[in-house]
Design a binder for these strands. Structure first.
Lengths: 247, 247
DNA sequence: CGGGAGATTGATAGGAATCAAGCAACGTGG
DNA sequence: CCACGTTGCTTGATTCCTATCAATCTCCCG
């Protein structure tokens, strides 16, 4: 029989034993500090594909770290236009935009069945006062988000369709690779339309550009399955443009 | 004679007596807390028009708050393409992107003779541990920057030239207005090319679009001098798009 | 006064959006 | 298990917006 049925606590995932710890948390925390975190962080809320983690306008209480799965965040304009502001995989934090007004500024939607940790912000804030490295870590995470946004601005402001898509694929590739997945063979979790929204393109343009890349032998596309055959060719396309951030 | 020549200290501007305090700092600080800040914040570095406050790649030590004047921040790609990531006026903070890697991620350049306060970050960080409202204030400032960046993404990803320029002018207008300047009559501190870089447009398009607005009677343009004659018309253009943030 | 940077305006070209049609995969229900 | 409708994707034809190329023009500054 399954032990887990008898000792459900043995299943409990804590920060202390989380394999993503080095992505979410500062290094060098003491055992004591880790258990303080474990006491505050609510583990493993599960979401099904398509489910909202939070919506723009909802009260902000917590940040969320992706444990497993895949999310998109997006802002919508009154007339219904949607701008995807990011895609988020394991170890990445969502909700930072909610701190400023105590209200979430974007929607966060699971693109596959997913699991998140909830970080109640005000308690993290007080904990940060006791654990300086934690405080610093949060400043760094927010700063990294700002840097990421700047590189998206560069992409949207300066690059043409081919460059945008190449940069996007390479960025995905590098983030997957740093999580132990294959860098050159992966499944897109999002639709062409969502890619287009993120890149400031229409879905037809995304589709056409993928086909063009495939035709040149740079990659192969089978629906959502992407194989990068000549990542160097893609890199050459975006070379000169600022590099995609690696996390 | 001028008193200031004899009592230069009477000129010293501190956070305690700074008129921009409500923009830079949390409200409700005690006299004691303010003097702690005064001890840390280095007042009034002066820059001439065109001067760099910091450059991308330089070591990061401090944040900078604009006291007077006007700045642009920009990121550059290897092949020389420049993306202006923001314009900054009094009370606004620059350098937040440097925290993540301890290196400045963008250039900051004065667009007119300017004055900034320097906030040594690590000392602000420790001060934040003693003054929770200060710590929270910094989180909020960074979050606000993220929200701002998201709205720029929406602008670059979804809007067309006229909408971008209208949103830009209204955003400037509202920020100037909240600082006590006229909302409908102001001087552009940046060139057409810099506006274009920020908005993802070429300078010719900026110029043409301004002319178009003027021709419709929505505003008048005299070089850098802009008068909004029918701000409602501009608002109508961007209505449906997400509103420009007010600070 | 002259040179040059910045801005305006015009003509043309090019890239992505739009409109449209057809296809493939998936899930549901008969 | 298969028909069928739905959804997402691909591909083609055309249009539209903005970039590009080019010619002036104005103002500022030395």
């Amino acid at each position: 029989m399954n032990d887990q049925l008898f000792h459900p606590h043995s299943l409990k995932v804590t920060c202390s034993n989380c394999s993503l710890r080095e992505l979410c948390l500062p290094v060098g925390l003491s055992r004591e500090e880790l258990s303080q975190l474990d006491a505050v962080i609510r583990q493993s809320r599960r979401l099904k594909r398509g489910e909202y983690l939070f919506r723009s306008g909802e009260g902000f209480r917590s940040l969320f770290a992706v444990r497993t799965g895949f999310f998109k965040t997006s802002v919508a304009s009154q007339d219904g236009r949607e701008q995807v502001t990011g895609f988020h995989m394991s170890g990445e934090l969502m909700g930072l935009d909610g701190i400023s007004a105590n209200v979430h500024g974007c929607d966060a939607i699971a693109l596959e069945d997913s699991e998140v940790c909830e970080l109640p912000f005000s308690r993290m804030e007080s904990l940060g006062r006791e654990i300086p490295s934690l405080q610093h870590h949060f400043y760094r995470l927010m700063s990294r988000e700002i840097v990421r946004d700047q590189s998206v601005m560069l992409l949207l402001g300066n690059m043409k369709a081919e460059e945008r898509l190449a940069a996007f694929l390479l960025n995905l590739s590098s983030r997957l690779s740093s999580r132990g997945f294959s860098a050159n063979d992966f499944i897109l979790r999002m639709s062409r339309e969502e890619i287009g929204s993120f890149l400031g393109l229409k879905l037809e343009t995304v589709s056409r550009t993928l086909s063009k890349f495939a035709q040149q032998g740079w990659l192969s596309v089978d629906h959502k399955h992407i194989k990068l055959e000549q990542p160097e060719a893609l890199k050459a396309l975006v070379s000169g443009c600022s590099q995609a951030p690696s996390v």
